[in-house]
Simulated scan of single mutants.
Amino acid sequence: MHFAEKNFHRVFAYHLKINPASGRVMKKCGMTYEGTQKDHIYKDGTFHDLYCYGIVNDK
């Protein structure tokens, strides 16, 4: 799917620091690391960092 098909300007996604495989998939899709939200998610009794990736339609 292309940006033009859905008329999107920007697409973003998040993944937990403890799941780096998801980050690799986002990079393969052309997404760029945009930042970290420290201790953003509380899961299984522990706080986890959330990594944000995004891509912008430059056209």
Rank of each mutant, 00 (worst) to 15 (best):
H40Q: 07
D44P: 02
F3Q: 09
Y53F: 15
E5V: 11
S22A: 15
K38H: 08
L50R: 12
K38L: 08
D49K: 00
A4W: 05
G54R: 06
A21T: 14
C52R: 06
A4Q: 08
N57W: 08
K6V: 12
M26G: 01
T32H: 14
N7F: 07
K17T: 05
F3Y: 11
F8A: 10
I55F: 01
D58L: 13
H40F: 06
Y33P: 10
M26S: 02
T46L: 06
N57C: 13
D39Y: 02
K27T: 12
N7S: 14
C52D: 00
R24A: 14
M31R: 00
G45Q: 05
V56M: 13
E34D: 10
E34W: 04
M1L: 12
L16I: 11
V25Y: 03
N57A: 09
V11I: 15
G35C: 07
K6D: 06
C29M: 12
N19G: 03
L50C: 10
H2Q: 12
I55M: 14
C52L: 10
E34G: 07
K28Q: 07
I18S: 14
Y33F: 15
K59F: 11
C52Q: 12
I41V: 13
H48R: 03
K38E: 08
K17R: 13
L50G: 00
E5I: 10
H9A: 07
A13E: 01
F47D: 04
A21R: 15
A13M: 07
V25A: 02
R24C: 09
M26K: 01
G45Y: 00
F8H: 09
P20Y: 11
S22P: 01
Y53N: 07
T36S: 06
F12E: 12
T36W: 04
Q37G: 04
A4G: 00
N57V: 09
A13K: 02
M1V: 13
T36I: 14
H40P: 00
G23Q: 04
E5N: 15
P20L: 10
K6N: 09
I18W: 01
D44W: 01
N19V: 11
H15K: 03
V25P: 00
V25T: 04
K43N: 04
H40C: 00
P20A: 08
P20T: 07
F3V: 10
Q37Y: 14
G23E: 05
G23T: 04
Q37R: 13
F3G: 11
